[in-house]
Design a protein around this nucleic acid. Sequence first.
DNA 1: CTCGTTTTGCACCGATCAGTACATAACCCA
DNA 2: TGGGTTATGTACTGATCGGTGCAAAACGAG
Lengths: 203, 203
Amino acid sequence: MYRTDMARPRTFDEERALDAAMHAFWANGYEATSTQDLCDATGLGRSSIYNTFSSKHELFQRALARYIDSMTSDQVEILEDAGRPPMKRLRALFARVVDSEFECRKDEHSIGCLTVNTTVELAGRDPEAAEMLARDLAVRLAAISAVIRSGQSCGDIASTRDAGDLARFLNAVIGGMRVSAQGGADRAALTVISETALDALNR
Amino acid sequence: MYRTDMARPRTFDEERALDAAMHAFWANGYEATSTQDLCDATGLGRSSIYNTFSSKHELFQRALARYIDSMTSDQVEILEDAGRPPMKRLRALFARVVDSEFECRKDEHSIGCLTVNTTVELAGRDPEAAEMLARDLAVRLAAISAVIRSGQSCGDIASTRDAGDLARFLNAVIGGMRVSAQGGADRAALTVISETALDALNR
DNA sequence: CTCGTTTTGCACCGATCAGTACATAACCCA
DNA sequence: TGGGTTATGTACTGATCGGTGCAAAACGAG
């Protein structure tokens, strides 16, 4: 079908372009990011973008997939660090969330989390995005649940609530922290929120 | 300046039109709601909309203000119900939040909360919206803090954390519940999240 | 009924939207 | 060096964007 030999090679790195597009969608949302914005962000011409990614919507899906892959594998890695006790792992997860809100900023404001942003903006009317988000949510909930279960069985976590329920709770708090950050909450505020959330596991 | 007498009267109710516009922005977001959508939602012609609300942006500000007014006064009323003990008031607040996620729906999905949606979509690049949201947040945090303080002094709330910090926490959980609802969480899931959040106040 | 004022409907504005057509450039292989 | 193939830049498409101009309609006051 394609003969990549004996033809003009690309002058750009597809992964880098995808990364730039991802940041554009992340900072401004799907609707507010125009195809021209994507050209500017990636440094590519319209032809190259459409030749490589087919459409704005497919480019968005690839950008979202990339974000989900990197963020969730990052978090799962923290959660599956068998060398540390469960509560320490959860604390590390929250610390990671707080840090992430101060990594990518724009005009002194957090740009939040692409997963949360997309859930709010698109989940209700973009079936493909909704399904990607649902699958990712399941993965994250499973990872958190596993840590909580092990914490409950070793006595590190006192709460007798269902591990899955506690995982949903922690996940909701993380989402709420993202929103709070976009609403202007500073590092201290986010830190206290996460500490308080962990209080709920110890009763 | 204006002589409303001896001129053609309006054929529509401004508050009803504003309400329809608010629901359109609420369900679809600012960017995804076109002026044509606003005409369809309100039943007004373009002239009437621009004559009454000046611009899409000003109409949005009025819609957001209307939403904030009604939602926050609703919640503050629950929180200031001096006849009930503090924890009961907080529980009632969360019950109200859960219910609200199942009042206005679209295609089996929650449309969330306009305050959260706007924080995510616009807070970073719309100063007027950001300021309205910040003022509203301060009001809600103050109301929650007051309830928590009274709960701490009467022994209804065991946590010795700063009341303001606990309020930030509860507010974040509420935001996280809105996001979870948009991500597909059902009533039982939201209920457990709120119960777990309240666990944190009793240790 | 006429005048002054505002509302309303309709046509229209330039700008921008996502996406495409096509010629040419750039490359590998023979 | 010439031919096959893909990448790229430029110009363009129809549709829609937010917003406006304007004339007719609709009313109250005199």
